[in-house]
Each structure stands twice: as C-alpha cells, then as structure tokens.
Amino acid sequence: MSDETKTEDKPAAAEKEWQPRIIAFVCNWCTYAGADLAGTSRMVYEPHVRIIKLPCSGRIDVSFIIKAFEQGADGVMVSGCHPGDCHYTAGNYHARRRFGGFRDLLEFCGFDMRRVVFSWVSAAEGKKWADLVNEAVAKIRELGPFKEYQKLLAEDIWRKEETNSDRETG
C-alpha cells in the first residue's frame, strides 16, 4: 500500500510546526471561571488548549472525549468543581463515578492515559488551571501527536483521497 509513503511525506512537512491540540471540557461554574481568572490575572500559559464549556461536569460523556480524538485532538482535559462545590449539588459526584469508568475503558482499549487529564479546578484556582494546562501541554509535546488515532483518521474514506490529490497539486 502507498499508505507508508503518505504518512511519511505528510508529517515530514508538518513535523516542524506540530503543536499539541488539546480539547478541554470544563464546567461553567468552576473551571471555566478559574480559567477566566487565569486570563484576567494575566497569567501566561500555553495556548494550545481549546475550551468547551458545559453547564456541569456531570454533562461530560465518554463520547465527548472520543469525538475530540476523532476530530484530531492529541489530548483531552476534563475538569469541574471540587467535590462538594457543585452548582447543582451533586453533578460532579455523579461525574466522578463516570470518569472512573471512562478512564478504565479508554485505558483498556489502548488509549495512552497520559493524554486524558481529569481535574477539579475551582473558580479561585486560576493558577492551578494554568499549571495543569502547562503540564498537559508539556506531556503531550513529549508524547507527540496521537498517531494511533490519527491513523484511523487517515483511513477515513474521504480524507484519504484528499491527501492523494493534495500531493498531486503539490
């Protein structure tokens, strides 16, 4: 198959500029506010995290994490209020039970769990958020792109053709 040549010449050009792509699913009341605080306090932290805010960490499903990887993410952060602080009383307690399941499920299926970071960040913990992001970015830089999943993306029946025709013109 010409797959090898394909994967070879694409990253070859892209390798230099590769930057981690991290998607963060965060709760609106704590982590998002925490991230906001990090911003308003002018803390400088890595810009490679794209935040998607949800009403509560209890809304976060394993599908979100998989979808993020499906769309080419190299890492995912999941974060909500500390236990006891949920805006909806118990959303994060329920979430915590599920997160344990997500973790075990993904790990079992061969996901490198260093790519998925779970955390509690309160509205006051701007610093903690900035540190977590820096830490995650550093870790994923070290791990490199999520090649295994991105191989599945390359198998995608329409993207495959795109790489071919891109090569044609380039």
Partner: peptide, 11 residues
C-alpha cells in the same frame, strides 16, 4: 454524508 468543515464525502 461524512464531513468536516472543509469537505466531506457521500458514503
């Protein structure tokens, strides 16, 4: 249709 923001395919 399976697509991204910049393209897709009929499958």
């Amino acid at each position: 249709d399976e697509a991204h923001y910049d393209g897709g395919a009929k499958i």
